[in-house]
């Protein structure tokens, strides 16, 4: 690990002042950042400790939504009574991720900013456009079993590893930030992540020194919620494919559908086309197949991950069937 200057911020304002200086990283849980620093994939010169900021409350909002402080640990969020009651897809996604120890430490804000677990990103002996822009991408012709099938570019086929962020995307979450100049920003999760294009090292729209302070969930959407994760081990493994789904059936027709996917793309993936294929249709196999067709129309495998295309189709259909079988 390269050495760094360390400071602890007492307020978000303190933190962004410190964070505005180049090559600084905020540290909250640190479970991903320190891992990357040990491997010298991240080499910050300054670390601003934000773990003691008073951003650890989960509060009901006037509009019926929920406001979550960025420092709320994943474990606490998963077990929060309001989340369990109104946003079970979020509890389920959090509980499907990592281990008990990691969920106790990892923060809500930090979870959005996890880096990919692409083997080549982690191996500093080989090129990687995300780690060293312009150096190349060995994953495309290499071992790419865990890699993306949607949203890839010539420069990068890595996936976003989070489970939590997949549920957050299905829930139309808004991220609230504080910038070094004191301005606050509200960023829809649909605008938060960037496709890799030819700049895969730039993963979000966050500006230098900008700090996630809160996450806001809109009022719970109508319908039933589910998170289903398919992985190589029964526990403590990243998703090959995951589906966060919220589906409402009214009078024998699908009235509302929100679908987000993990393990498929460089960001938690959302497909409006797949949702549109369901709305107004009877909750039956034909509609589910049409949604999978729409989701996967542009899917592209790279050899070892070709299996993700049929696996995604089957997982999506199974989730939709489970969520609607009482209503059909």
């Amino acid at each position: 690990m390269k050495t760094f200057d360390y400071s602890r911020a007492d307020t978000p304002q303190d933190a962004v002042k410190g964070g505005a200086v180049g090559n600084t990283r905020f540290i909250a849980g640190g479970t991903n950042l320190l891992d990357l620093m040990k491997l010298q994939i991240e080499t910050p010169e300054r670390i601003v400790d934000i773990s003691r900021l008073a951003l650890n409350e989960v509060e009901a909002m006037d509009d019926g939504g929920l406001r979550i402080g960025a420092m709320v640990p994943n474990a606490d969020l998963a077990a929060h009574p309001q989340v369990i009651k109104a946003y079970p897809v979020l509890s389920r996604a959090l509980l499907a991720g990592a281990s008990g120890q990691l969920r106790n430490k990892a923060s809500t804000g930090g979870n959005f900013l996890q880096r990919t677990r692409c083997y080549y990103f982690y191996d500093t002996a080989v090129p990687c456009n995300k780690r060293e822009p312009g150096s190349g991408c060995p994953a495309k012709e290499g071992f790419n079993r865990i890699h993306a099938i949607l949203g890839t570019s010539d420069a990068c086929i890595a996936t976003h590893p989070s489970d939590m962020a997949v549920a957050m995307r299905a829930l139309d979450t808004t991220l609230v930030t504080l910038k070094p100049d004191g301005d606050r920003r509200r960023i829809s999760i649909h605008e938060f992540y960037r496709l890799p294009g030819d700049t895969p090292h730039i993963e979000t729209v966050l500006e230098e020194g900008e700090l996630i302070t809160h996450v806001e969930l809109p009022p719970a959407p109508a319908g039933k919620q589910a998170y289903r994760k398919v992985r190589d081990r029964a526990s403590y493994a990243f998703a090959l494919v995951s589906v966060a789904a919220i589906v409402a059936v009214d009078d024998g027709k699908i009235a509302n559908a929100s679908l987000a996917f993990g393990g498929l793309g460089p960001m938690p993936w959302r497909s409006e086309a797949a949702e549109a294929a369901l709305i107004g249709k009877a909750p039956e196999r034909e509609a589910f197949e049409a949604a999978a067709d729409a989701l996967l129309a542009d899917a592209k495998g790279f050899g070892s991950n070709d299996f993700k295309i049929p696996l995604t189709r089957r997982t999506l259909i199974a989730v939709l069937r489970d969520l609607t079988e009482d209503a059909a």
């Binding site: 849980g29 891992d35 040990k38 474990a75 106790n104 430490k105």
Partner: peptide
């Protein structure tokens, strides 16, 4: 030393964490 095996688990304020992944 990367939070994958749990051998370093300790309790901090009563909560279990991986002591290798924190400063």
């Amino acid at each position: 030393d990367h939070g994958q095996c749990g051998a370093c688990t300790v309790l901090v304020n009563g909560r279990r964490i991986n002591s290798c992944l924190t400063l």
